[in-house]
Nucleic acid binder design. Sequence first.
DNA 1: ATGGCGTAACCCTTACGA
Length: 255
Amino acid sequence: MKIATWNVNSLKVRLPHVLDWLATSQADVLCLQETKMEDKVFPYAELEAAGYRAAHNGQKTYNGVAILARGVLDDVRWDIPAFADEQKRVIAATVNGVRIVCAYMPNGQAVGSDKYEYKLRWLAALAGFLREELQRCPQLVLLGDYNIAPEDRDVHDPAAWKDQILCSEPERAAFRQFVGLGLADAFRLFDQPEKTYSWWDYRQMGFRLNRGLRIDHILLSAPLAAACRACVIDKAPRKLERPSDHAPVLATLEV
DNA sequence: ATGGCGTAACCCTTACGA
């Protein structure tokens, strides 16, 4: 079973890239973030034609998350229960016995800002939700755009980013809280090339100069970590015309 | 301190992202 995550920065713009990537990657599950569309315009028919069913939690202009799957999506849940939030950032479903939790975690804008406080509250609420989901579903994967670079080696210039948004210690502590729930960073289960990132700024030739951050992650519960055979970041779509600023992350599980 | 680039919308100026 191949499971992937990709922040597409508008599914309307990126649908051709998504369809191409599904065909080449042969992913069984693809979680999307920043669809930036309402449910009523979600491209269910185009995805169905490509062999994928979908569950979407969307809104106009901002946010929006979806799970695409070759199989049936069971027990779909939207948002974080017991956390009042206008922003559509979470969707969960069970596919082939695996609980998929797809998240677009808040950006936070700047350390100390209102959006930063919202980010930390949001991350704490998600951790509470996951604790419950893990009790129900031992085979669980939390994947998406975390907007957190967990360690300095996930940052092209750690000195410049030190204590900045995406890299601050409270954000990294929130990431470690997910790990503390029993989740493992799939990417770090394997030897990886140095300076591998999942996001590059559109500006100032960020991608060509590999000025990136690794902020998109796949976290696996213990049974799935034991079944994980590979995890890679695919830079190919970032090289296309009109790319998303994020690259997809793909994990291969023997389940 | 700002803008750089890309996307969307109350669409040609502004908000937001990371």
